[in-house]
């Protein structure tokens, strides 16, 4: 399970460097996310660009991460693939999460500061 992260002045962008968040890695994902969200800026954006597929275990892990981050921090998602988006829609989790079309859209010009 590979996660990368970059901090801007106000947000931590965590990039999932895996094609799938599924039952095989859901627990490891949750554990690593817990470490990365502790001591982070108040806003966290999870960049899902590389994730083609998610199952209900992966979805449950993402919900668990948000529950852990809230209410102190804002936990948002960016760049859902069509299949990932389908899982969020079918479970109505798209109504619960703030979902951005891209990290750039989430941060505005903030990304430039990250480099």
């Amino acid at each position: 399970m590979e996660l990368a992260h970059t901090d801007t002045a106000t947000a931590r962008v965590i990039t999932v460097e895996e094609n799938r968040i599924d039952a095989a890695i859901a627990i490891s994902f949750k554990d690593q996310m817990r470490e990365l969200t502790e001591g982070s800026p108040d806003r966290i954006v999870l960049d899902m660009t590389q994730v083609d597929f998610i199952d209900s275990s992966g979805l449950g892990a993402i919900v668990a991460v948000m529950k852990q981050a809230c209410p102190d921090k804002s936990f948002e998602l960016a760049n859902l693939s069509p299949t990932v988006e389908k899982v969020f829609k079918l479970t109505r989790m798209d109504t619960v999460f703030t979902i951005h079309a891209s990290v750039e859209a989430a941060l505005g010009n903030g990304l430039a500061d990250a480099d």
Partner: peptide, 22 residues
């Protein structure tokens, strides 16, 4: 129910409903 506080959100129970939907 997804309308309560974030701390009450379900973390499971999605599997069979996805199967039935599709």
């Amino acid at each position: 129910s997804l309308s309560g506080p974030v701390s009450h959100l379900p973390e499971g129970g999605f599997g069979w409903s996805l199967i039935k939907e599709l």
